[in-house]
Nucleic acid binder design. Structure first.
Lengths: 211, 211
DNA sequence: TAGATTGTTAATCGATTAACAATC
DNA sequence: TAGATTGTTAATCGATTAACAATC
């Protein structure tokens, strides 16, 4: 199995989604053209992307087995074996993420929240425990959690980030609008709303210009 | 002014953020190397990206004027003239976005929310009005809003999307995990949590493998 | 069999990086 | 002046697309 490109990796989850839709619709086999049409991509690109992750070949004339493809992609993306995550910052966004049912489809389960503002040592949100931040290290170690989600104000984000790493977290998903510094052996993904809005607002201004 | 690349566009907001940090720290001039170091990029790339959007040249030996660069980038990204947005789906995520103070830095202001679940015709959330969805078309027209944000369950997302377009919305920011179909003259940006998690989880598994 | 669709190699396109002259 | 830093042209790298043989 070859290494796949960064771009391919970003497309895989949308393939997975489309394949699940197709299965829902009762399709057992699907051609690259059908997938491509749903996603505004080219069939060639879809085939090449699939080739990078699938264990079995597609059949000429029939296409790809939907179930097998779903299985292969989920496996490749690590969405099969669910990993636990904790979240720091139980404000509005934190609560929203704790209640977001879709993460289980992506192999992630938020098992606890942490916050400074809890005078009490323990609260509950969306059926999940919320602890005082001073319990962080303790609980992360005990549960062996690898993923930490940051939803604190940007002023505290770096500090929380350092804390998470010290507690043993290896992957950080950051929703605060700052560029966090982490060592090379820590995975970091910034959920960058500004970047999304830049793309959207640029496209919008082009559209408005052409009318 | 040349057209800039898609990749450059995605980097611009992080430059802007870094420049604002630098201004905060009292810097009047900055070199491409300093910016590059903060963002783990190469100075050459930073210079090329800047060249695509800035109106004035940098000075050899001194670097770029921080304020001018901030101005040029904000202008280029359309973050200066604030555009109004409405949001459909005032659940946990919708509420979180309505209360998110940072959007004003990106030239976006959420002016109203819509939901089906309001038996009453009018409510309030984070100091902003929340109307019944049947008021959508009316209010979008009246305010001349161009941007619509979708935070409804995925089952209703396409339906809401169609509704927004019919009401005159030209740019859609979609948080529901579905691939929405829109005509060519509508800007769409899917905020794809699954793609982010794919990247993060892949990096994590590499890290865990190497130890 | 004929036709549709796959998988792969080669060609093209676009973005990054290297090299270097210009200049404050 | 010497040294640091810019801006740009050319070289490299990586990803997409085109072409086409293989095959069900």
């Amino acid at each position: 199995m070859e290494g796949i490109s960064k771009e391919t990796l970003l497309r895989l989850p949308t393939y997975l989604r489309t394949l699940k839709e197709l299965r829902e619709e009762g399709e057992e086999y699907v051609s690259s053209t059908v997938i491509a049409n749903r996603l505004n991509l080219s069939p060639i690109q879809v085939r090449k992307d699939i080739a990078g992750v699938s264990s079995t070949a597609g059949k000429p004339k029939t296409g790809f087995n939907v179930n097998e493809l779903i299985e292969d992609m989920s496996e490749f993306l690590g969405f099969n074996d669910s990993s636990q995550a904790i979240i720091v910052g139980v404000g509005q966004l934190g609560k929203a993420l704790m209640g977001y049912g879709n993460f289980k489809n992506y192999g992630v389960e938020i098992v606890a929240g942490f916050d400074t503002n809890t005078e009490i040592d323990f609260a509950e949100e969306n059926g999940k425990p919320v602890y005082n931040i001073n319990k962080l290290s303790n609980i992360v170690h005990r549960l062996g959690v690898h993923i930490g989600i940051i939803t604190v104000p940007k002023e505290n984000a770096q500090e929380v980030c350092d804390l998470l790493i010290k507690a043993g977290i290896r992957a950080i998903w950051n929703f605060a609008p700052v560029n966090l510094k982490v060592p090379d052996n820590i995975a970091i993904k910034n959920e960058d709303m500004a970047a999304s809005l830049a793309v959207l607002s640029k496209r919008l201004s082009e559209i408005l210009k052409n009318e």
